[in-house]
Deep mutational scan, measured.
Amino acid sequence: EPEARKIVEKLINNGLSPEDVKRWAEKNNNPEVKKAAEEYQKR
């Protein structure tokens, strides 16, 4: 999901860690963003 990846990169560029992004995604019920954050961590 390229859109989710863009969101993850934007949040990380704004100073969030991938863990923060995953928590944000869970709080906002956004499994695509959570998955993208996990993939981002593996890179």
Rank of each mutant, 00 (worst) to 15 (best):
A25T: 01
I12W: 04
V33L: 08
V8F: 14
N29K: 08
K22W: 11
V33S: 01
K42R: 13
L11Q: 02
N14R: 14
R23S: 07
L16M: 14
E1L: 13
E1P: 12
P18H: 06
A25N: 00
P18N: 03
K10F: 15
E32V: 07
E3A: 11
Q41W: 09
L16S: 04
S17H: 05
G15V: 03
K6M: 13
D20R: 04
A25W: 03
N13T: 10
E26P: 02
R5D: 08
Y40F: 09
R5F: 13
I7Y: 06
A37G: 02
N29P: 01
R43C: 09
N14P: 00
A4V: 06
V21N: 01
N13Y: 10
K27D: 12
A4H: 05
I7A: 03
V33D: 01
G15L: 04
A25G: 03
K42I: 10
W24Q: 00
Y40N: 01
G15D: 02
N13E: 13
Q41H: 07
N29G: 12
V8T: 03
E1W: 14
I7N: 01
E32M: 13
D20S: 05
E3I: 10
D20Q: 12
K27C: 13
E39A: 09
A37Q: 01
N30H: 13
R23A: 10
Y40D: 00
E39S: 06
N14L: 15
E3D: 14
N13H: 12
A25V: 00
E26M: 08
S17M: 04
E39Y: 07
E32H: 10
A36W: 12
D20Y: 05
G15E: 05
V8Q: 01
E19W: 05
E38Y: 06
N30M: 15
K42Y: 10
K42P: 05
K35R: 12
R5H: 12
V8P: 00
P18R: 03
E1H: 11
N13G: 12
V8D: 00
L16E: 03
E3P: 08
E9M: 12
A36H: 04
W24V: 00
K6C: 14
V21P: 01
P2V: 15
N30S: 10
K22F: 11
K34F: 15
K35G: 03
E39L: 08
D20L: 05
E9L: 12
Q41G: 07
E32I: 07
K10C: 14
E26N: 04
K10E: 14
P2S: 15
S17D: 07
R23L: 12
N28W: 11
E19S: 06
G15R: 03
V33Q: 01
W24K: 00
I12A: 01
Y40T: 01
N13V: 07
P31I: 11
W24S: 00
G15T: 03
V21A: 04
R5I: 12
W24A: 00
K35H: 07
K27I: 12
V21L: 05
Y40V: 03
K27M: 13
I12D: 01
K22R: 11
